[in-house]
Nucleic acid binder design. Structure first.
Lengths: 231, 231
DNA sequence: TGATACATGTCGGAA
DNA sequence: TTCCGACGTGTATCA
């Protein structure tokens, strides 16, 4: 990984066109060839970047560029899409290289997939007598997170979100509409399950006869024997 | 901006929990206090980060940590949400500080707005005899991208997307529902226009009687005389 | 390979 | 402040 602090201007042409006026910025060149351009604020997202696979070609300035004060030009080109990032360097204030090695990678806990797994294992959270039919039940317009049956044996379609927003209710509504046309499943009741359900989403769901269930992630994780706590 | 190359492990607890095992990584501390943790591959997105506003608190290791080889601990806490990022540093390989100043910011020239302008100018792309009424036609729930009339003089509402997703169909459906209640406009036909339309979105649109039109951005841009190519 | 949904999405604008 | 839509969204999963 190469770290460069430089006065530079940047031009990008690809899915859009963008220009960064002359200023001092951090340039990061990663081992895979990708390049990031960061300012000193606005976290997380670079001002500009090039994703791998790409190639960096450095070149000396021509007379006109030298006249303008440019000491070096980087042309970063995406291998497949031909997107191009051009960094015009006016002054290099820092330049260092570092061996980092490969990263073991991030371990996540608490995303939707995990919620779905936990709820499938603890389907009785939805009520006495509920039984799991299957996760990711396929329909023509996409997979329903969980299909189950209630104590009476009637179908229940469950949409799981980390944060229960109005979009999720719309999504479940589409599934329900479709599934209720299937005589093998109909009638299908809907359950909207989330760690947190926004008031608007709850109102819309209940207006459509969809039951809302707030999931206690920590409690469900606590019950899950197979889970090893990270902390 | 402070740049640190360090052997470290990282733990995040907030909207989810995540853990990074011991490895050598780049730590960036920006002027606004935000922290990025980057590996040497996977561009653009850090492995872990903390967005501003947040505070970084550095501390000496306790005996147990020192035993484990930790020489310093960073605790980065979000000011509002109490999300926490803990960086356990085992060895610092590089540490430098740089004054960057404020960045003049990115100038963008997007595709989305341009698509709308082009289609307004070339409204006949929708079919013979179509005429533009206006762009950004205002309704009670927001502006419709384009309102036009077809050869028979009937109203046509157009929703434009770069990528035609199911959300766009929902959006257009809401507009159509509202506009069809307006006797001066009704009946209003719907057109879903995008550079690329996803199969799911097409299915839903056609099920609702909405016509799908795939826009050829390059061809439309080629026809547009007013466009000056930047490259 | 292509399509689809998730994301600590982030970010910006308007009500 | 919340809501809503765009993003050079990126990325993993699954057919």
């Amino acid at each position: 990984m190469r770290l460069v602090i430089a006065k530079c201007s940047v031009d990008y042409a690809g899915r859009l066109q963008a220009h960064l006026p002359l200023a001092t910025r951090l340039l990061v060149v990663k081992a895979d060839g990708s390049v990031l351009v960061h300012s000193d604020s606005l976290s997380y997202k670079p001002l500009n970047w090039m994703s791998p696979p790409c190639t960096l070609q450095s070149s000396e300035p021509d007379d006109e560029q030298r006249e303008a004060g440019i000491v070096e030009t980087w042309r970063v080109t995406h291998t497949k899409t031909a997107d191009t990032l051009v960094v015009s360097i006016y002054e290099i204030l820092h330049d260092s290289d570092h061996e980092l090695g490969i990263d073991p990678g991030l371990q996540k806990d608490g995303v939707e997939a995990h919620l779905q797994k936990l709820l499938a294992e603890q389907i009785e959270v939805l009520g006495e007598g509920h039984r799991l039919i299957r996760r990711e039940y396929m329909t023509a317009i996409g997979p329903v997170d969980i299909l189950a049956t209630d104590a009476a044996g009637a179908s229940v379609a469950v949409e799981i979100k980390r944060r229960g927003d109005i979009d999720g209710v719309e999504q479940l509504t589409r599934y329900l509409e479709l599934m209720n046309r299937d005589p093998r499943l109909a009638p299908v009741a809907g359950v909207f399950a989330a760690q947190e359900i926004k008031p608007q989403a709850r109102t819309l769901a209940e207006d459509r006869g969809i039951r809302c269930v707030v999931l206690d992630y920590d409690a469900m994780r606590g019950i899950d024997d197979s889970h090893t706590r990270l902390f």
